[in-house]
Design a binder for these strands. Structure first.
Length: 556
RNA sequence: GUGCCAAUAGCUCAGCUGGAUAGAGCAACGGCCUUCUAAGCCGUCGGUCCGGGGUUCGAAUCCCUGUUGGCACGCCA
C-alpha cells in the first residue's frame, strides 16, 4: 500500500477540478495548467501536503498568488471524507490537512505485506546494470572501494525494491600495464623468498600483501618457477596471484554484504576479439586515424578537447579502447540503463565515454555515472597518505574489524556521493557507540523486547486503530506511510543517502512514541492497537535497514 | 594554465529542477529512570548558508565574479 501516493493523486484531482471550474466561471483564464507540485512540507504546521499552483499561476494571471489561491479554494465546496481542511498560507500555498484515520490503514497493510512493505512497481521492470568497486586485482580493497561498495550495493537494493530489475557487476582489470607491474612485483618477491637477490621494480607494488601472496605461492608451488624463463615465470605468478587477490576481494565484499551477479574480465574482451570488433566498428564510422604509429579516436568529433589513442604504436590497445568495448558489450546485453560508480578522479573519463557510446549509436543518457568523491583518511588531525603503490592504505577488512560492517555501511551511505568525506579513524573507533546506526538499531531492539513482553491474547484479531490519536502516534504512523514513496524517490534520483535519514527520523519518532505512550496498558484494546503500531514500526525499521545492508538486532 | 566538484552550527554533514521561521547527528550545558531496554526522552546554547554583484513576488538553491580546498588534464588505469 502506498497511501501517500494515493493521496497526492487525490489532491491533484481536486486541484485540477477546481481550476477547471474557476476557468469556466471566468475567474481564471487558463491556456494550460503549469506543472505544480504536491509536496510534503518540512514543517508539520503546514499541513500534510502543500500545493504551489497558485504561485506558479501568479505571473500569467497577473494576480497575487494568495488571491489566486482563494479563487481555487472557492471552487472546492465539497470536502471529500479524507480531507479535514485546506488553508491558504505563506506566500500562497494551499495546505491540505488529511483525516488522520486515512493513514491508519497502512498499519494492517504493513503487517500483511511484511517484508514486501515499501516495495513498488515504480521502476516498471526497467533493466539496470550497476557496476561498482571494480578495483584493480593487484591489491586489497581500501576505503574508497568500501564507499563505492556500500553505495553501489545499497543503490541496487533500493532500485530493486522500487521495481527495477538490477544486475550488479564487477569489472576485473586483469589486462594491461598494472598487471605487468603486478607480475614483476610478484616475481621479485618470489625470488627474494627463495634466497635470490634481485632489484625490486621501481613502479612495482610495495605493499606487504604482495609479499604475503608470494609466500603463499612458494608454499603451494615451491621453487618450480625458479629456473624458468622470466616471461613464463611471470605468467604463472600472475595467474596464481590474480586468483588469490580476486578470491580475497570477493570474500571481503561478501563479508561486507555485497554479492555480484557478474564478474566480468577485461582480458576476455581481448580474447574474444570484442575490442577488435569495436575498433573495426569505429573505423567503419570514420572515427579513427593513424598518427605516429598509433591509432587515434576522433574524440574531438563528439565534442572532446582532444583525440584519444585507441591502439598504441606497440600494437596494444589502451584501457580506454577496452572500456569502450566493455560498455558496448553492456548495452548489447540489453540493459535499458547502465550505471557506473566511479571515483571522482575518473571524472575526465565520463564525457568521452558517453561520447564514445553516442558515436557507436547508443543514447549517451542511458549511461549514468555516479561520481563519488574520494575518502580522505584522517588520524586525528593528520591526513593519512594513501597510495596503493607504496602499500600504505587502510583496507576494507581492517575497517570492518575496527568499526564493524553495520557502522561502516551506514556511515558511507549516509553521505551523498558527491561530498568529499573525511574519515577519522580515531573517531570511528572511539565514537562507535555514538554512531547513528546504533540509534536506529536500538529502536528495533526495543520493539522486540516490548513485543516479547506482550501476552498471547494481545495480538489476536484486528485492532481498533482509531484509538491511536496521540500526536506521537499520528506522526509515527504518518512516517510509516512514507516508506514506499521514500524508496521510489531515492531510486529515481539515485540517492541512497536518503534512506539512512529516513531510518533516523523513523527511529526518533518511535523513541518519542515510546516515551509518550505506554504500550502495555490495562485497557486491552488500546494495548492491542499500540502493540500493533510498534510491530509495524519494527517491520519498517527492519526493511529499511535491510536495504542498507545493516543488521536489525533483536537485543542490544 | 584549462576544465570538473565543492565551501551551510564548534565537528561531520543534509537541504540545492527557486518557496513558508535553514535542519540532523556528534560535541557542550541543564533536567527526566520504584512502572514496556536511559545505546532513550525533554530543554538550552550554537548560523555573515565563503565574499561581492545580479535575476524576481521570493535565493542556501539560478547567473556572473572573486577567494579557498579537492580532483583531472599520459601511447597510465
Amino acid at each position: 500500500m502506498n497511501r501517500v501516493r494515493e493521496i497526492k493523486g487525490l489532491i491533484r484531482q481536486e486541484i485540477l477540478a477546481a481550476l477547471d471550474q474557476a476557468a469556466a466561471a471566468g475567474s481564471l483564464t487558463l491556456d494550460s495548467v503549469p506543472a505544480f507540485a504536491v509536496e510534503v512540507p518540512r514543517d508539520k504546521n503546514h499541513g500534510d501536503f502543500a500545493v504551489n499552483v497558485a504561485m506558479l499561476l501568479a505571473k500569467s494571471q497577473g494576480k497575487a498568488p494568495r488571491v489566486i489561491a482563494q479563487m481555487i479554494l472557492d471552487q472546492m465546496k465539497v470536502r471529500p471524507d479524507w480531507l479535514v481542511r485546506v488553508e491558504i498560507a505563506g506566500p500562497g500555498f494551499l495546505n491540505f490537512t488529511i483525516e488522520p484515520m486515512y493513514f491508519h490503514a497502512v498499519l494492517p497493510a504493513i503487517a500483511k505485506e511484511d517484508k514486501d512493505y515499501g516495495k513498488s512497481d515504480f521502476g516498471g521492470g526497467h533493466k539496470v546494470q550497476i557496476e561498482f568497486v571494480s578495483a584493480n586485482p593487484t591489491g586489497l580493497l581500501h576505503m574508497g572501494n568500501a564507499r563505492g561498495a556500500a553505495l553501489g550495493d545499497t543503490l541496487g537494493n533500493i532500485m530493486s525494491a522500487a521495481g527495477y530489475e538490477i544486475k550488479r557487476e564487477y569489472y576485473i582489470n586483469d589486462a594491461g600495464n598494472q598487471i605487468e607491474n603486478f607480475g614483476k612485483s610478484l616475481e621479485a618477491r618470489y625470488l627474494e623468498l627463495l634466497g635470490q637477490t634481485c632489484q625490486f621494480p621501481e613502479e612495482g607494488y610495495h605493499g606487504e600483501d604482495i609479499i604475503e601472496t608470494a609466500r603463499h605461492i612458494v608454499t603451494a608451488e615451491g621453487d618450480r618457477f625458479l629456473h624458468m624463463e622470466s616471461a613464463l615465470r611471470r605468467e604463472f605468478l600472475i595467474q596464481a596471484g590474480l586468483k588469490e587477490k580476486l578470491d580475497n576481494i570477493r570474500r571481503t565484499l561478501e563479508e561486507f554484504g555485497v554479492i555480484y551477479d557478474v564478474w566480468f574480465s577485461e582480458q576476455s574482451l581481448h580474447d574474444d576479439g570484442e575490442i577488435k570488433d569495436t575498433i573495426q566498428e569505429l573505423r567503419e564510422k570514420g572515427l579513427l586515424y593513424e598518427k605516429e604509429g598509433a591509432l587515434w579516436l576522433k574524440a574531438t568529433s563528439f565534442g572532446e578537447e582532444k583525440d584519444e589513442v585507441m591502439v598504441r604504436a606497440n600494437g596494444v590497445p589502451t584501457y580506454f579502447a577496452g572500456d569502450i568495448a566493455y560498455h558496448r558489450n553492456k548495452f548489447r546485453r540489453g540493459f535499458d540503463t547502465v550505471i557506473n560508480i566511479w571515483g571522482a578522479d575518473h571524472h575526465g573519463h565520463v564525457a568521452r565515454m558517453k561520447g564514445a557510446m553516442g558515436a557507436l549509436g547508443f543514447d549517451p543518457d542511458r549511461l549514468e555515472v555516479i561520481l563519488m568523491q574520494l575518502v580522505r583518511l584522517m588520524q586525528g588531525k593528520e591526513t593519512v597518505k594513501m597510495s596503493k603503490r607504496s602499500g600504505q592504505y587502510v583496507t576494507l577488512s581492517e575497517l570492518m574489524e575496527d568499526v564493524g560492517k553495520d557502522a561502516a555501511r551506514f556511515f558511507f551511505v549516509m553521505r551523498s556521493a558527491d561530498s568529499q568525506m573525511d574519515f577519522d579513524l580515531e573517531l570511528a573507533k572511539s565514537q562507535s557507540s555514538e554512531n547513528p546506526v546504533y540509534y536506529v538499531q536500538y529502536a528495533h531492539a526495543r520493539i522486540h523486547s516490548l513485543l516479547k513482553m506482550a501476552g498471547p491474547g494481545d495480538r489476536e484479531g484486528e485492532a481498533d486503530w482509531s484509538l491511536l490519536k496521540e500526536p506521537a502516534e499520528l506522526e509515527l504512523i504518518r512516517k510509516l506511510a512514507d516508506l514506499p514513496e521514500e524508496i521510489s524517490q531515492a531510486a529515481k534520483d539515485r540517492e541512497p543517502h536518503r534512506m539512512p535519514r529516513y531510518a533516523m527520523d523513523l527511529a526518533a519518532l518511535f523513541h518519542g512514541f515510546y516515551t509518550d505512550c505506554r504500550c502495555l496498558v490495562e485497557d486491552p484494546e488500546l494495548r492491542k492497537a499500540r502493540l500493533g503500531l510498534a510491530d509495524a514500526t519494527r517491520i519498517v525499521l527492519r526493511n529499511t535497514l535491510a536495504l542498507l545492508g545493516v543488521s536489525a538486532p533483536e537485543r542490544m
